[in-house]
Design a protein around this nucleic acid. Structure first.
Length: 664
DNA sequence: AAGAGCACCAACCGCCTCCCC
DNA sequence: GGGGGAGGCGGTTGGTGCTCT
């Protein structure tokens, strides 16, 4: 599939080059190698033939191949822009050049980095342009993780222009990101008043209460949590849901449930408007959000889980559901928790998606399937007549799954919550608060962005581990274990008794952790952030190919150069190497694309024979299954008869990859 | 040691609302 | 009034690292 895509790109590119007088020799056996075969019109030494262009293209084609995201044209263009080639993009691509060259040069000089050269090359590029399509006249916008250099650009832009008008960021800053992506990045990670780190116990308690009142109104909840983002809260909640459901616990502590019910009742008494800013829609949310806490056993009140149900005799499960209370919010208690594996498994069917995943994973919430089912059904034009007796309906809708199916899948036992599966929360790896004000006043040396990134992705844990074993375990979630145990024991001993709710220890006010200490430490780290303090080295280090796993370089360990190149060392997948090559640190890593292009390998034809097998296997691996066989055949059969093998004279002309470090 | 499963997080996508013309 | 752009929001997905078996 991607071969044809490559072919189209190559044909277009080569056509351009030919028109410019370049001689291009194509070897379709290796899609990215043809770029290394350019000869200038003069036959030798135009600036284009000074290698950077082809070598970079070839080099960066590897990760592109691996990722199967082929923004090849663009990173060719960008590579040209940043490689001091006299042949600029306009010569190749005319007015369709994605960005003004002068402006790009200015951006490059200002930030002294290879933001675009690397970012665009390294990461997958969209084929469609911006977030929702190509709305920028053919400009291919980048997706994927943000780099620190991009962050710096965005911060600079916001400093100058303020928030808003996000679509202009790309136009004025050279950042190839859509406005939405910029806004999201700023809102969730870059704005100065963000509070990073684990939620405090108070915050967790507040989230629970807010969710009981608002439902999945993350943004509104975030408004009550200064420094927290809706995304953060949403992720937290979804995690919490999974954890509690896994533990067989209600979503809310009983007192929160009671409070929400009481508030809702008050709201109902006030013309259905409980708060000034809450209208009809809000009221529905308020209703719906309490439902998950109302846990029934076969649609009967479970006194263990819902001690307050008798207070709402008028709100039965069926009526609540059939009245469409919280059509969206309601279902979202279940939907977000549908696990990915289940999603995939069930994605092919309409209703079965609920039958399988929800039923199996969240048996305690099966009474709520009516609503999601309705939602889905409605969305597909289905409807169900009102049935005051929800049980038959539920059985009808899900009956084939409620019993045998769920058990048959063997993934969950509805009758047996698994408190043993409760796990304490892991430390959050969120990076510390970014404070614009602190950047300029930091007393500590500004770390390289690279190191900042490393820290961001993998913050130092030594201190954290000693003083804060579980930063996010702030008592609320600690109590899960106790709740689960209590609940489990309570069910074991008196599952059918109308026992009091005290057996379900709320626990949300239980013992706290050293979270606050941890937060202070995080903030200390935050003082070191200096997004504008990047250096050419740090930024260039981002201009290296990604690992075979496709992970961001930001997440790589500290730079470990080899042979003087600004190339980070990456975990070596020794499966790519022949046995004899393993555990030989002095050798180049043949699995790395840059190593494949390294001078010692490419300039010395004599070494080719010995390493041919290794090289061939490595490239075949890089090419993937689609091409590996073809490539192996080609490589194996062409070395002696053709000049396009890895040891060909064309490759001999290639410079060392290390020349990348000479990029401006 | 290796792989599967899982948790967590960042980011994307699609839909919606608001606002301007 | 309505069309379109910008931004907001909620749901979803992909990647990575950890844990368990």
């Amino acid at each position: 599939m991607f071969c044809s895509f490559y072919a189209q790109i190559l044909v277009a590119l080569f056509d351009k080059l030919r028109r410019l007088g370049y001689r291009v020799t194509v070897n379709l056996g290796i899609p990215f190698l043809p770029f290394c075969q350019f000869l200038t019109p003069s036959g030798a030494t135009s600036k284009l033939s000074l290698i950077r262009f082809p070598i970079l293209v070839a080099l960066e084609a590897f990760p592109a191949l691996r990722s199967r995201h082929l923004g090849l044209i663009q990173f060719i263009v960008i590579t040209l822009m940043f490689s001091s080639c006299s042949l600029n993009g306009s010569e190749l691509f005319g007015r369709d050049w994605p960005c003004d060259h002068d402006e790009m040069s200015r951006t490059t000089n200002e930030s002294d980095d290879g933001v675009l050269s690397k970012d665009q090359i390294e990461s997958p590029l969209t084929e469609e342009g911006n977030c929702n399509g190509n709305a920028n006249g053919g400009i291919i916008l980048k997706k994927g993780p943000w780099t620190s250099a991009e962050d710096a650009i965005l911060i600079e832009y916001v400093k100058k222009h303020g928030e808003g008008n996000w679509n202009a960021v790309q136009k004025h800053s050279g950042l190839f990101r859509c406005g939405k992506s910029c806004r999201l990045r700023w809102a969730n990670h870059l704005r100065p008043n963000l509070k990073k780190g684990a939620f405090t116990q108070e915050e967790e308690q507040l989230i629970i209460e807010l969710h009981a009142k608002m439902g999945n109104k993350w943004a509104r909840m975030a408004a009550h949590l200064p420094g927290r983002t809706d995304n953060e809260i949403k992720n937290y909640w979804n995690t919490r849901i999974k954890r509690r459901q896994r533990a067989g616990l209600p979503l809310y502590p009983p007192e929160v449930s009671l409070q929400a019910l009481q508030e809702r009742q008050r709201g109902l008494n006030i013309n259905g408007m409980d708060n000034g800013d809450k209208g009809h829609h809000e009221l529905l949310q308020s209703n719906s959000c309490e439902i998950p806490d109302v846990m029934f056993d076969n649609l009967k009140p479970n006194p263990n889980l819902l001690p307050y149900v008798p207070e709402l005799p008028d709100i039965t499960t069926s009526t609540m559901l059939m009245k469409g209370l919280g059509s969206s919010q309601y279902s979202s208690y279940v939907l977000p928790t549908m696990h990915r594996q289940k999603r995939l498994r069930d994605s092919t069917a309409l209703l079965p998606s609920y039958n399988g995943s929800v039923k199996n994973e969240y048996p305690l919430f099966e009474q709520f399937q009516d609503d999601p089912c309705d939602k889905v059904a409605q969305s597909y034009g289905l409807s169900f007549p009102f049935d005051p007796d929800a049980t038959p309906k539920s059985s009808h809708l899900f009956g084939e799954n409620q019993g045998s199916h769920a058990l048959a899948n063997g993934t969950f036992s509805a009758s047996k919550p698994t408190p043993g599966a409760v796990k304490l929360e892991l430390p959050s790896l969120q990076y510390p608060e970014t404070d614009l004000g602190s950047w300029g006043t930091s007393c500590s040396p500004s770390p390289l962005l690279e190191s900042v990134d490393t820290f961001i992705q993998s913050p130092p844990t030594g201190t954290m581990e000693t003083s804060c074993p579980s930063p996010r375990n702030s008592g609320l979630l600690d109590a899960l274990l106790h709740e689960a145990k209590n609940l489990s024991s309570g069910k074991n001993h008196s599952s059918d008794k109308s026992s009091n709710s005290s057996t379900v220890t709320p626990g949300d006010n239980a013992d706290s952790s050293a979270l606050n200490i941890c937060e202070a430490e995080w903030e200390d780290y935050g003082e070191q952030l200096s997004p504008l303090g990047h250096t050419a080295t740090s930024l260039f280090s981002e201009c290296t190919p990604i690992s075979a796993s496709g992970s961001s370089l930001d997440e790589q360990p500290p730079p470990d150069t080899f042979t003087g190149c600004n190339v980070k060392s990456e975990p070596l997948d020794q499966s790519w190497l022949a046995d004899g090559e393993k555990q030989t640190p002095t050798r180049l890593d043949a699995t790395r694309p840059d190593a494949l292009l390294a001078s010692d390998w490419l300039e010395q034809g004599s070494s080719y024979g010995k390493d041919q097998v290794v090289m061939t296997d490595a490239i075949a691996t890089l090419l993937g299954d689609d091409l590996s066989n073809d490539y192996k055949q080609m490589a194996g059969g062409s070395t002696s008869s053709q000049g396009w093998g890895l040891g060909s004279c064309a490759w001999n002309n290639m410079p060392a990859v290390c020349q990348m470090s000479e990029l401006p």
